[in-house]
Nucleic acid binder design. Sequence first.
DNA 1: ACCAAATTCATACATTCGTTTGTTAGAAAT
DNA 2: ATTTCTAACAAACGAATGTATGAATTTGGT
Lengths: 198, 198
Amino acid sequence: MNIATRERLLRAATRLFADNGYRGASVRDICNLAGANPGAVSYHFGGKRQLYRAVLRRAADELADLGPRPEAANGEAEQIVLVDALRRLFQRMLSDDASTRLLLRDLADGGAVAVESLTPPLRTAFEQLAAALGHGDNPRGSAEGRLLFLGLAAPVFLLTAAWPVVARTLELEMDQKEALLAELVERTLHAHGGVETL
Amino acid sequence: MNIATRERLLRAATRLFADNGYRGASVRDICNLAGANPGAVSYHFGGKRQLYRAVLRRAADELADLGPRPEAANGEAEQIVLVDALRRLFQRMLSDDASTRLLLRDLADGGAVAVESLTPPLRTAFEQLAAALGHGDNPRGSAEGRLLFLGLAAPVFLLTAAWPVVARTLELEMDQKEALLAELVERTLHAHGGVETL
DNA sequence: ACCAAATTCATACATTCGTTTGTTAGAAAT
DNA sequence: ATTTCTAACAAACGAATGTATGAATTTGGT
């Protein structure tokens, strides 16, 4: 199990960092969960901080890989491919996995990692979305394009990060998160003259 | 300076907790910044955890007090009062003060405090908003009402928590946050048949 | 001015933290 | 067969943590 220790450390750290935050997860706990020594973190990553960075980077890349792929922009069935990618991404974000919780913590800490590794995939998603809905030329310059993007990204983010608050405010059941988001996204897309169903 | 020490502790703790998180802010640092002894936290609050709870509660209440007041619902100029309250609330949230950052951290930790003390003011805000825009009867039951609320809350939350990411994605300057939000809110309100300018 | 209560203080305690150290086992290379 | 090197280990380090303690000081009421 040569390279496996490093991988086990990464997995254990992802879970513990997501659950308890950076300072809340001790190196000992991580190494315990990974079945390694207390010094394994320093040995493999050079310290706790760098392990945290590695974990955050992997989480961000993992989420980013779910977004629309750049090469899909020229396909014939643009909207279908795009909508599929969006559906995957949204479902992943809505299920509170470790990656999403980690990025939320990073945002509370200033969002250094989020800015760096989430911006590129968000940009391609935005461009493809605008292209597929007809806001083709320079979507970033138009208020329409910005509204379209924020109309999708903002609700997903809100329901991901603060769903308990929203549910209590709107007097919804806790299991209606996906339904509410679907309703929201469908209306937003429709308002911008796009696909019928997500 | 009798009661002042307690207050200084609260202020110092608010800043340090917001900047470094719960575990990242040590009791010694807080007491140092407040000009008090290491034991002052235990004496005045009974421990670090209870100081944190007090700080979070105050931050949430502070934000909640900026929202629309319940008694304003029956005034004649409903929309004006409401819009003023919303403007105050939004500007406060957009300026990244300690209260907002603290609540973001609480959300990353599960949002226990946020749910408990942010839900009531959000609910009255929602009801008044729906009433002022004509979705009077049972706004929570209608998809229109939910969309209206989320159309306002979601962008504010996104721009508050993740503005650097959004700015980089849309290739906007960092100082255009308020402008973008104003554009968004205005369109959303207008789309729901409401006031012209926020 | 006096006393009792409340508050602040300096200090110390036990724990836990991240990291370093010296060493061992096993594979790779010579 | 001998050397070299990487990975993993147990142990221990110094530093920092939250809290407890008792003395010193300030405060407010009489």
